[in-house]
Amino acid sequence: MTALYSESSSTGRSTGVDVSSLIIDLQSVGLRVEAPVESRRGGAGPSDSGMLWIEGVPVTVPTQTDGPSPYVLKAEDDGQGIYRDGVKLASVATSHRPRFYDMTTADGVPYWKIALLHLDSLASTVLQTCNYWGNSDQCRFCGIGVSLDSGRTIAKKTPAQLAEVAVAARDLDGAVDATLTTGSTRAPDRGAYYVAECGQAVKEASGLPVEVQFEPPHDLAVLDRVHGSGVDAVGIHVESFDPKVLAHVAPGKFRTGIETYFRTWERAVELWGPGRVSTYVILGMGEDPDLTIAACKRAVEIGVYPFVVPLRPVAGSLMEEVAPPTAEYTERVYRKVAGYLEERGIGADTAVAGCARCQACSGINGLQNQLSEGKPLLQIGSRPAAGS
């Protein structure tokens, strides 16, 4: 196995780092911070994470001021760096508080309660309520109600509010796309019509590419209307391909049925095209990895991008105490799925907008880039012991 980084036998100093492996490891064990970093607290999305560019690669990683992580973010004279055992592994640029956060709507709602900037992607949950939340159907990994309960957002964002914020985020902070999601509703469209209406308003006002995310509607004809709104991509998230895991962590999605997701994706790909339909696949919830890899392959074959991510435990969720999966485990799955994506010719560049375009919450894109450049996929391996 190839090590995460090598050391000079004479100096004990780092002679090089594989950035993809470093990112995969950081997203497993986290990063201690001794320097200021913009982060997202609680709720849906990349919660309780620092937002960084590691050697130019956008990344979200769990951050902590103390804890077991061997990695630490330190301030330097000309920036910041990630260190392990006193050895600098990578240079880092951190994001700063977006300027549009200091603005408010005419009726006094702070812009940051309407949408947040995740590195260079504007993101919002347009309906911060979900028919699964607070009952036996609550998704165990989800924190959609946490932000609302803490007063960090509002329950319903209007298309006009989102359009106004999107223009400001584009002009003041360089947002390059918008990702709009929603809690599931009891209506037959599952909230798809409203999030599409919001997406249309954002796209028309700002010109930004937009992805909207929703559950499979009862009638696939809903997808035609969503497509007619002009949004660029859709995310329809199964979360886990293992039915036993899905039944435990997301009972409502389990009742929808994995085959329903596949039927919905097939129609969505017909409308939006290969690579513009995506699904989250969360690792570390007890799933069968071989079953997961096989289902990801099936999704890729029909043109769906399986955005594979490690579990990011959300404070206030039902899985807040569950540890993320190991880097070795996620890397094994990434390696296989990256190969399928490369063979199919879909990736972050074909996604256009949304999580699969941004890639900051996963390490899979780095491995796919290695494949596309004809480089061998390096494996995560042994690392120097502390103090070496």
Rank of each mutant, 00 (worst) to 15 (best):
L377A: 10
T182Q: 09
A166G: 13
L127H: 08
V61N: 04
L116K: 15
N135D: 01
M285E: 10
E7Q: 09
L246Y: 07
P36K: 13
A247G: 09
A360D: 11
D224R: 03
L122T: 09
E76N: 07
A315F: 04
Y5K: 05
H237P: 06
G303T: 12
M285P: 14
A178M: 01
G345T: 00
W265Y: 12
Q161E: 15
L311T: 00
S9C: 14
D85N: 03
S184A: 02
H237F: 01
G134R: 11
V245F: 04
S147T: 12
S372V: 12
D85L: 08
R13G: 09
P310D: 01
P306W: 00
T330E: 04
P188K: 01
C198K: 04
H227T: 01
A115K: 13
V212D: 04
A168T: 11
K157S: 15
G16L: 06
L89T: 06
A233E: 12
I364F: 11
E259K: 04
S362T: 06
M1Y: 13
D107N: 12
I302C: 01
V17R: 05
R140A: 14
T350Q: 10
V19Q: 02
D189G: 03
E76F: 00
N365C: 05
V277R: 05
V322A: 07
L341G: 00
L208I: 14
S39I: 15
L223Q: 09
H227N: 05
S240G: 03
A3K: 15
A338K: 00
E320A: 05
C130E: 03
V277A: 14
P46T: 09
A166N: 12
Y340W: 07
A294N: 11
A386V: 09
A123D: 08
R13W: 01
G145E: 15
L162Y: 04
A233D: 03
D77A: 08
S69N: 07
A250R: 03
C198E: 03
D102E: 02
V304M: 07
E55Q: 10
P36F: 15
G143Q: 06
D224Y: 07
I302W: 05
L73W: 00
R40V: 15
P209G: 05
R357M: 11
A353F: 13
S47D: 14
T158G: 12
T260K: 09
V57T: 05
H237I: 06
I24T: 10
V249F: 14
S49V: 01
E270M: 13
S47K: 00
V281N: 01
F100C: 10
P110I: 08
S39G: 08
N365I: 03
